[in-house]
Each structure stands twice: as C-alpha cells, then as structure tokens.
Amino acid sequence: MEKISVFMDDYRSPPDGYVFVETIDECIELLRKFDIEHLSLDHDLISKTRNGTMLVQMMIDEKLFANRITIHSANSVAGKGMYNHFKQAQKDLIMPPTIIVSLRPLPLKFIPPRVLQHYMDVM
C-alpha cells in the first residue's frame, strides 16, 4: 500500500509533499485507502458541525490511524480535546501505543521555518 502524508485544513496551505484535504470526508477516504505516514489535523473547518473532533471519533471508532498524528489547530481548547481523545484511545488499547501523537498549534498567518521542520522530519 502506498504511503502518503496528509494535511487537513480549510485555511492554511500544506507543507510540500503533503496531500491536502479540506473536509473530514476526504480525510476518512484517504485513511481507508492509503497507509498514512503523517496526518496533520485542524479542528475548525468550513463546516461548523463536521470538525476535527468528529473526525477523531470516526478514526477511533473505525480504527483508522496514521503512523504519526499531529494536531495543528489554533483552537487551543478543541485541539487539546482531539489530542486527549487519541491519548485515551491509546490508554484503552484501541489505538496502538506506538503511534506518536503531537499537539503543535500552528498560527493562522505565518508558519516559522523551525515549526515546519516538524513536517520535514517525515519525508
């Protein structure tokens, strides 16, 4: 199965080499069809009801994971909630403990080069 990295956001542009998706439906489709090396997730999307938290719950329910997951949402409360859902799934042995989950909020306007290094380490 082909390995890809995915960046889900409706505002920011993805780092080079990432497949860009704007909705949770697009993201779930890729999780079902590909081996995802790195998945970077935003919370607040165009749809106010179909957001990152809903995606995380779908991923846990269907056991669809990536090798590495980053929550990059600037929404600190929702981003931390997404992170905590993944960590709880690991504690509950639903999600493998080998999956690295990171909480690294990205600013909306400018992404400093040192922050992008987190994404370049995947390549």
Rank of each mutant, 00 (worst) to 15 (best):
R68M: 05
D42M: 03
K109T: 13
I94N: 07
R68N: 03
M8C: 08
I94L: 14
Q88K: 13
K80T: 07
L64R: 05
M82S: 09
S73I: 03
K109Q: 05
T23I: 12
L103K: 05
I4W: 00
L55G: 02
I69C: 06
S73C: 07
R114A: 14
S76R: 14
S73W: 00
K87G: 02
P112C: 13
S47W: 08
H118P: 04
V19A: 06
K63L: 01
K48C: 10
D61C: 05
S40H: 02
K3T: 15
H72M: 03
I36N: 10
D44T: 11
M59E: 09
R68G: 01
I100G: 09
L103H: 13
M54K: 11
F65A: 03
I94M: 05
Y83I: 01
L30W: 05
S73R: 01
K91C: 08
P105R: 09
M123F: 13
P96E: 10
I36M: 08
G81T: 09
G81F: 10
L116Y: 09
V122C: 08
L31Q: 11
Y11A: 05
T98V: 10
L106W: 15
D42E: 15
S5V: 08
L116K: 08
Q117R: 10
T49Y: 14
A89K: 02
E62T: 01
R50T: 09
E62A: 09
A66K: 04
P96D: 12
N84K: 03
M1A: 06
P107G: 13
D42L: 01
T23H: 09
V56M: 04
N84D: 15
S73K: 04
